[in-house]
Structures are given as C-alpha cells and as structure tokens.
Amino acid sequence: MTKSVLCAVDISNGDSDIPVLRRAAQLADLDGAQLDVVTVLPDFGETWVSGFFDTGFHEKAVKDAHDHLVGLCASALGEERNASVRHVVATGTAYQEILKTAETAGSDLIVIGAHKPDLKDYLLGPNASRVVRHSAVSVYVVR
C-alpha cells in the first residue's frame, strides 16, 4: 500500500507536466496517499557564477518557483485537491534532489515525466533515467 507519492516536475516546461501531475494524483488517490510535488532549481552556490547575482537572488528564485509550482498544481488538479499537496522547491542537481526529497518524505513511489529524451538515454530523459537507476523505491514514468 502506497502512503506517499512524490511527483517531480520541471516548472520551466510550462504546462507539459500537467499530465504527470494528474497521473501522480490518480496514483496517490488510489491508496489515499499523501501527494508531494517537487521542482528543482539549479544551484549556483559557491561557484564563481554566484557572484553575478544580486544578494537575495536565490531566496527570491525559491519564492517565485514555489508560487509557480503551487499555481501549476492548482491548474492541473484544482484548488481543492491542491490544498492537500505538499509543494517542495529544492536546489541542486535535479535527480539527486528528487531522490533526497523522496527519502526525506518517506515516499513509496516517485512519478516523473520522460522529458527531453536523447538517444543515449534510450528515449528517457537524463534526469528520469538517473532517478530510475538510483531510486530505492518504485518509479512511475509518464511519457
């Protein structure tokens, strides 16, 4: 029985993750599981690149990403369903942060879209393929 479903979306993909969100909600609803939705921002951290951004840039980016994530979930799932969704904005490498969030949340299932496939990834996007390879829990890939 699934108790927690983590849905990973890329807010920079516009509305293309709506089918992924809807499938994750359906899967969570089958068992009455908690639905968490995560998006990952790149980490400019301590690198020389971070010097090009104003102080407070990261905090503003996280807030804007959270607002966008909540809006995306509301448009895909409706306001009522969205009210029970936990929205997570992580910073770092996408697949690593997805796996870390799944572990922290105690997720039994990760739902992810197969985006930007490359032949070397066998028609599965690079982040999705890494999540599938390294996940300790089941991964449902939406094509």
Rank of each mutant, 00 (worst) to 15 (best):
G92S: 06
A128T: 01
P42G: 01
R23G: 00
S16R: 15
T104Q: 11
Q96V: 07
S12W: 05
H68A: 13
E80V: 13
V111G: 01
D67A: 13
R130D: 04
L6T: 03
T2M: 14
M1N: 10
A83M: 06
H58N: 12
A128H: 01
G113C: 01
E80N: 13
Q96I: 06
Y140S: 08
S129D: 01
P19H: 07
G113A: 05
V49Y: 11
V40P: 00
I11Y: 09
L72T: 08
R130Q: 15
G92C: 05
V139L: 13
I11M: 06
H134S: 14
D17H: 07
N127H: 12
A24G: 10
N13L: 14
P42K: 05
L124Q: 03
A76N: 07
V139T: 09
V20Q: 00
V142T: 02
W48K: 11
V62Q: 12
A25S: 09
V139S: 03
H115L: 02
V37W: 11
V131Y: 10
V142A: 01
A61E: 01
C7H: 02
A28K: 01
F57G: 02
S138C: 04
M1V: 15
H58W: 07
H68M: 14
D36V: 13
D17Y: 07
D54T: 14
V89N: 00
G71D: 12
A128R: 04
A105P: 05
Q26D: 08
G106E: 07
S107P: 04
V20N: 00
T101D: 05
D43W: 13
V62L: 06
A105M: 13
D15N: 07
K116P: 01
I11G: 09
S84C: 08
K63D: 10
G92I: 02
D43N: 12
V37T: 02
P126I: 03
V40T: 02
D54A: 15
R143M: 06
L119E: 08
P19A: 04
V85A: 07
V20C: 00
S129V: 05
S4P: 01
V38F: 07
K60F: 07
